[in-house]
């Protein structure tokens, strides 16, 4: 049974093809101005890599911000449910999931079947999302991927950043720079602040092993290390954390299809 999942996020579009339980192929493209077009581009790449055409796919589920505008999807499912299913696919022991991208942060607790038990999402405030780190990288003129490693090489000691709001934190950081605080120490403070915000969201849903991290934040070792310390668990991160939601969508597609076929077979 061949199914597909398409995740149209605010920054990238992902498509995954699944044959029963086997991950056949996937495609990843940056989100363009047209969500439907983005979904099609990602799907085409996945189909090409899997040597398939769209008519071979029996059922498609879409998810993500642009999920309602995917023309070739038969059903749409929220990101929360798809992330839980996807994390369960890669790590069957997953119970607590943190997904953080540029625009939002999700904390999810799920059961052994990947069904959501508790969730909270924050997509209203930049300070609670990866976006705050991009703003600071820009402000301090440091490549985004250097923030994590540098935040772990302390000079004199972590410089605390007390403002939550990214706009107010910017002024605070500039004041620290003027007073001559070492950049690495400021970065440590910024990573610690983001980690504690993330931890607040995780605590709301409850923390249970195993712990899985997905999304762009998985690439920032400074935040991941500090979240792990607070949570008291090591994080599992799969080989391509960006496709977790699309994998979950493809599983939803398969499960929906199985459900639809059952009554037909009984008849």
């Amino acid at each position: 049974m061949i199914t597909a999942g398409v995740d149209v996020g605010s920054l990238s579009g992902k498509a995954v093809v699944l044959d029963d339980n086997r991950l056949v192929s996937w495609g990843l493209v940056p989100t363009g101005p047209d969500s439907a077009e983005t979904a099609k581009e990602a799907m085409d790449i996945a189909l090409q890599k899997g040597n398939l055409s769209l008519d071979r796919i029996e059922f498609v589920v879409s998810t993500g911000y642009g999920r309602v505008v995917v023309p070739f999807a038969q059903r749409n499912v929220t990101e929360i449910s798809c992330h839980a299913k996807g994390a369960n696919y890669f790590f069957p022991g997953a119970r607590t999931i943190l997904d953080m991208g540029g625009q939002d942060c999700k904390a999810i607790r799920c059961d052994a079947n990947g069904k959501v038990v508790n969730f909270a999402m924050n997509d209203k405030c930049a300070a609670g999302a990866g976006r705050s780190m991009e703003v600071m990288a820009d402000l301090l003129q440091i490549p985004l991927d250097e923030i994590g490693p540098r935040s772990l090489q302390l000079d004199q000691g972590e410089v605390a950043v007390s403002s939550t709001c990214t706009v107010f934190a910017k002024s605070e950081v500039l004041a620290h720079v003027r007073q001559g605080a070492p950049t690495n120490d400021i970065l440590a403070g910024l990573c610690a602040a983001l980690a504690s915000r993330v931890y607040g969201l995780l605590r709301r849903v409850g923390i249970e092993p195993e712990f899985v991290i997905s999304g762009g934040i998985g690439k920032n070792v400074g935040v991941v290390t500090r979240v792990e310390q607070k949570v008291g668990l090591e994080a599992n991160i799969c080989f391509e954390p960006q496709i977790v939601g699309a994998v979950g969508a493809a599983i939803f597609a398969r499960d929906t299809l199985v459900k639809q076929k059952k009554p037909a077979a009984a008849r």
């Binding site: 038990v117 909270a120 405030c125 709001c165 849903v205």
Partner: peptide, 11 residues
Amino acid sequence: MKANYGYADGS
């Protein structure tokens, strides 16, 4: 399922 709808910000 416990579904938490909303957000946290500076305030």
